[in-house]
Amino acid sequence: MYYPVQAQKLTVTGNWNLSINSSYISDAGVNLATTVLSPTNVTIIDVDVQPRNSYNRQYKSQRVLVQKVDNVWNVGLTLWCKRTITVTNPNITLGTNFQQITNNSLLFFNTVGEQFNIPIQYQLSGLSLLIPANNYSTTILYTLLDN
């Protein structure tokens, strides 16, 4: 029987689960804090190369796009992402400032060669008491393309 071995080029690990309650209000009479940040490494991205030869592992130029696919969402909420810089790496460029994740795929960052353990942070904006209490979720989809 034939079992294909799937070569992983892009690996995304880690979800952001957030629970908003009264602790996000500074005092009675005030609205919710409008912006909430995730941990700085809530999602980790590994960018591999194919074919995985020594040249590509060092020099292949690729780009990562990001978009969201809403499951249950509210138009008042906006989601943002950025790449957290832990060590300066000249082989990863762009993506270090928060950019809004939209329902259309947009360039997030570029890579040269294989790049593992790229930490990603999210920001949720637009929180308000006027948004109905509910469970909201969206799938953040990353796509790796060759440059």
Binding site: V5, N21, S22, A133, Y136, T138
Partner: peptide, 23 residues
């Protein structure tokens, strides 16, 4: 066929539970 099955997408879930608030 092994080479053509390389995966070029990945995803993470952002889940926000907005609880009712009375303060």
């Amino acid at each position: 066929n092994q080479f053509s099955s390389a995966q070029n997408t990945g995803s993470a879930l952002a889940s926000i539970q907005l609880n009712p608030i009375a303060l």
